[in-house]
């Protein structure tokens, strides 16, 4: 075998093994969660409130599921439209100048901000300064702020991926930018944009740090009242685990949370796949 072919085969093996390793880690986590958590999962676990002493040793996680869903919905309602608008500005309207560079850099910095810092900032601003207290609203705003850059970046990239000739053809007909945007670019980028929003929802669902200081309670019915705290799956998991309340229930909760994230990711992947097929 010639040296070149040997190098090629070696490269292939290294990359293939890297992919395999990732798959093994992911499947390992999932498998372990199923192994440890499946015994805790039953109808009562999904549909009842936590009970027992200490709280969580018995009963279920329904308020945490409800709370997490409320938080996701609120975060997405807060971040989706401004995120999309920023993405449209960056992809379609911004000239390559200092302002657009500052916005791009700011979005990137926001994406890299540790979520506990976002949480702390939101605690100071919404919980204390604006007087919302530890509440669903403060938590939703914190998560909204956290996922905003994810929405911007995915939507911007989805718009930039649309065939640039469509813009040129439209403009050369005398058609305005906004008309091309509404009739061509947004529908074409929609699967990518929605996929990005779903990924951001997954990111919000799993975030623990920002909700610890803005919204989460150890036990509350999670009524959906904007000014009341709610329970949330990641925080509930953290309490069950860190306080050694019940490891079985902790693994059960983790399994529910991961399943929720998996569903969101699979939907996002399907949308991207559909876009690729259509494109």
């Amino acid at each position: 075998m010639s040296l070149r072919r040997l190098i090629d085969t070696l490269c292939l093996a290294i990359f293939w093994l890297a992919g395999l390793l990732l798959l093994i880690i992911l499947l390992g986590i999932l498998g372990y969660l199923i192994y440890r958590g499946h015994s805790a999962i039953n109808l009562e676990f999904l549909l009842a409130s936590p009970k027992g002493l200490p709280l969580g040793t018995e009963g279920g996680i329904l308020p945490a599921i409800k709370g997490t869903l409320c938080l996701i919905m609120l975060a997405v309602s807060i971040a989706a439209l401004p995120g999309l608008a920023t993405a449209v500005y960056l992809a379609e309207y911004a000239h390559k100048n200092v302002i657009s560079q500052i916005i791009n850099t700011t979005v990137q910095c926001m994406a890299g901000l540790p979520s506990i810092v976002t949480g702390l900032f939101c605690y100071a601003l919404f919980v204390v300064r604006m007087g919302f207290g530890i509440s669903l609203l403060a938590g939703g705003l914190a998560l909204g702020m956290m996922i905003f850059p994810v929405v911007v970046v995915t939507a911007r990239d989805a718009l930039l991926a649309v065939n640039k000739h469509y813009r040129i053809v439209g403009t050369s007909l005398g058609v305005s930018k906004s008309y091309i945007l509404v009739r061509i670019l947004l529908p074409q980028a929609a699967p990518g944009i929605i996929g990005g929003i779903l990924l951001a929802m997954g990111y919000a669902a799993g975030a623990t740090a920002p909700i610890m200081v803005t919204v989460a309670a150890i036990a509350t019915p999670s009524t959906g009242d904007l000014f009341q705290p709610v329970m949330a799956l990641p925080y509930h998991l953290y309490i069950l685990f860190s306080q050694q309340v019940s490891l079985d229930k902790a693994y059960g909760t983790a399994l529910v949370l991961v399943s929720l994230l998996l569903i969101l990711n699979v939907i996002a992947m399907c949308l991207r796949h559909q876009k690729r097929r259509e494109g």
Binding site: V169, G170, T171, L173, G174, V175, Q188
Partner: peptide, 28 residues
């Protein structure tokens, strides 16, 4: 817009907008 409407341009690469045949014609 008025200028480009009066002086139409057809490009080298054949480009179909991601619409139906009819909507392509009626786009402008």
């Amino acid at each position: 817009s008025w200028v480009r409407k009066r002086i139409g341009l057809v490009f080298q690469t054949p480009i179909a907008l991601p619409l139906s045949i009819k909507e392509n014609v009626l786009f402008g």
